[in-house]
Amino acid sequence: MNQGRNLFRTLVLILGFAFLYIPIVSLIVYSFNSSRLVTVWGGFSTKWYGALLQNDQILNAAFLSLKIAAISATLAVVLGTLAGLVLARFGPFKGRTLLSGLTTAPLVMPEVITGLSLLLLFVTMEQVIGWPAGRGMTTIVISHITLTMAFVTVVVQSRLSQMDDSLEEAAMDLGARPHKVFFLITLPIIAPALMSGWLLAFTLSLDDLVITSFVAGPGSSTLPMVIFSKVRLGVSPDINALATILVAIVAVGVAITGIMMARQQKQRERDAQMALAANQAMIESVKKG
């Protein structure tokens, strides 16, 4: 009976992961296909990578997207951390419910709505105060910050609510003023959460098509916009090559984090053993004394 359950479990996992990964694997395999007809195998080739590297439109778009993603992720982490701190630590105050609603709504809001509303805001602002003049990188960055700070807020808020708040009280008790408590205690402890928040924001920004299409002006085409206009016309092998490069970057990143995590895990196990030994020694000394 137990075996039957294990078999079921394994089967579910195999099918589930097959569903998740076959599309990605197919992208990679066909990026090395020399035939232009993506699904007909015409022999191994790396020519699409060469084509990709000569495609100025894609390269420029990629560069712009990276720039936007880096700026908006950084600012989103700053704003999201503040919002997470307010929600997790400041207790009930007037308007807290609205703030909490404003931070969770972008998580699920259909992007067409967010995109349209932001564009209309920018148009209105331009009419009223003359800024931002036209649409381009600034408007894209502002929109991406608004979208991604919601994710950062959730990450930070949940990390803070797991954190023992007597740590902060202890620091205050030992004479640190609130802003010092934040920089000396809270920030170092939640730093890993901020890092993953930043990566999440960066990825989301790099990936966003719909909102960006609304708020981008002429001449500020991001990578997803270029990809979308290309794939709308059907499959094209250089996009497969681009996908493969992206997957490779992510895979390397994950491998590095995985190795680091495994190392930390080992270190932690060693430390736990050390602590256990120390405890034993202490009990022994109590017995003797």
Binding site: P23, I24, L27, D207, I227, F228, V235, I239, A243, L246
Partner: peptide, 19 residues
């Protein structure tokens, strides 16, 4: 993990599978 790679490209992959 797939979430960290481009959403657009993952949808695009299905064109190659389903056509």
């Amino acid at each position: 993990l797939p979430f960290w790679t481009s959403f657009l490209l993952r949808v695009y992959a299905w064109i190659g599978i389903l056509k």
